[in-house]
Write a protein that binds this DNA or RNA. Structure first.
Lengths: 328, 328
DNA sequence: TATATTTTTGTGCAATTGCACGGTTTTTGT
DNA sequence: ACAAAAACCGTGCAATTGCACAAAAATATA
């Protein structure tokens, strides 16, 4: 952690460089430091997010589609980003920004936020701007997944978010999935697991992602929690995606094939009691999973882009492949 | 105004340069533009605030002093910034940031904000970060003052703020002060003056500054609205400062020497009906003016730094110089 | 249509920045 | 106390950036 005087200096230098547009030499002269030192302080200021760059994308939302989503899935609020012509790379980042703005507006002093980690929530967390926000405590909603990408792990994300929101971080020191139901129960009865879970249950806002079960892209597969075979079996038994590690079926019911019980984290019914559950999800590959997620009824607010929203509405209005098969 | 595609391009380039840390050459190559063009786009992106630099100062507030201010002056909320050791230059900027964060938290979709222009409100407006905020309309609360500093004039500030808050701007096309009460009444009866004033009166939030009447520093003097002589006369008649061009006395009563009636803008009683009136003021020189402002009872939220707060509390707890004189 | 005027674009160069490397000081462990 | 490790610091140079100036294109004006 940064101490006050250091932080002060970084901020000072960053302000002079980026806001006042002084050269590194000029700053060095004024502060009586060497030019190279200023260079290094600037680098650190960026690394420590003492200076933040906010790109103000031209946001074009699509109110008509948002309304359709709200009505169709009983959402309190939906945000649908109109995609830019060329730019695909930043799609998730921009939707994340949308979600981050909503969070910033929603969170008030003294609130508690619980977070499930993933690509999308990662983007939201990054897009949250540091600054006065009262004190918001952050609680990890689900155990840690051993992700390939470093800096994307639960603990560091929880910490980053807590730092930005000026509150305390509460970690859930447990793996996301354990081998047996027995082990899960044992783990859940531990004080250090029970307490954060209880806090998470009573959170005011939850930020969750939607995972899919495609062997090629699923985070479960990447983390080695589920083999391709197991994934296929779960899919055949009706599972289409997960929220907070809880797998659900196409019609939004909890999957009953015996996986969910082995996950350490908030369950779907826990999420239902949280006043505001916000989710961000983008991607054609995820359509089926997202549709199931929306049908669970645990989401209150949903952010996506136009492509995904259109795919969702289209898929919702015609029989699923599963029903198709039954009908034949 | 920027059109969508332009804005998009600026954002794209700014993101690549500042967030992804690519060189201008690399960006030029990827987008098929010349290096110099990228350089110019970056410059424009900064000028148009498509990219914004947020310096995350280490904020240390002083809750005990804040409480004293709240109690002593009937404020709903007070923010007092603990000053940094060395840095005096950024004092106002940092307090402005504090005010901006409060505004960002307070404003909701569809609200109306009214603004009086000045050094302090300028800082707040600059510190407001662009981004999704619903739509907040901005109304100019007081006529335009011919200020020396360009870019600090009412119209451009109102525009900048409206752009950041994603809402419409409503200008008040009138001078701040006119020569006679008759002229003021005539002007106020004009449709184009009446309408914005009516909107301003019904605003949800007002952002105001506190002006002082010291001939050397007063904005009135700088703008040529009041001569040093006139200022001295007003001070002798009890005036100590102004909010929105309305001069008040040390005990917070409206000044009755016939200046306020010539000002085109919100009056103190108009501000009283606005649910949230927030003010930012810093500086030892302004202590007397700020004390009077707090005593008018129109302020709900007040931001300042520790030095100023301490001076205020000290001054409030002992007889004013004016009373001293009476007592002798 | 020819000409003036503004705007846009690119070249060349000087200023500024990023960083590898080696030296110095401070910290840590024994 | 001593050595090893780590953190810190500044020089020199190559890469990058900022910008003045001129050419070219677009636009307005007569």
């Amino acid at each position: 952690m940064l101490d006050f005087a250091e932080h002060e200096l970084l901020a000072q230098v960053a302000a002079m460089y980026y806001v006042e547009e002084l050269t590194q030499d000029a700053i060095a002269l004024q502060l009586g430091l060497s030019r190279i030192k200023i260079y290094r302080l600037l680098k650190q200021a960026r690394a420590e997010q003492v200076i933040q760059f906010t790109v103000n994308w031209p946001v074009q939302r699509t109110p008509d589609v948002e309304l359709q989503l709200c009505r169709g899935f009983g959402l309190r609020e939906a945000f649908v980003l109109k995609p830019s012509s060329s730019d695909r790379t930043h799609a998730l980042a921009r939707v994340g920004q949308l979600g981050a703005r909503f969070l910033e507006q929603t969170l008030r002093d003294g609130m508690t936020l619980t977070v499930c980690l993933g690509r999308s929530t990662f983007e939201v967390i990054h897009a949250v701007r540091p600054g006065f926000q009262g004190r918001v405590s952050v609680v990890q909603a689900v155990g840690s997944m051993a992700l390939a990408t470093p800096g994307l792990d639960s603990a560091s994300l929880t910490r980053e978010l807590a730092a930005k929101l000026g509150g305390a971080a509460q970690y859930l020191a447990a793996p996301m999935v354990v081998d047996s139901i027995g082990a899960a129960e044992m783990l859940r009865s531990q004080r250090d697991v029970q307490r954060p879970l209880e806090l998470a249950r009573q959170a005011d806002v939850a930020l969750v992602g939607v995972g899919n079960l495609d062997p090629a892209t699923s985070e479960f597969a990447k983390a080695g929690y589920l083999s391709a075979d197991e994934l296929t079996r779960i899919r055949q038994a009706g599972g289409v995606g997960d929220i907070s590690g809880q797998i659900f079926t196409a019609d939004g019911a909890a999957y009953t094939g015996g996986f969910n019980e082995r996950v350490i984290g908030l369950r779907l019914e826990d999420l239902r009691t949280i006043p505001t559950v916000i989710s961000i999800a983008v991607g054609a590959a995820k359509t089926e999973a997202i549709l199931g997620a929306l049908r669970t009824g645990v989401l209150d607010v949903f952010c996506t882009d136009l492509d995904t929203a259109a795919a969702l509405l289209q898929l919702a209005h015609r029989p699923t492949t599963f029903l198709d098969r039954e009908r034949l």
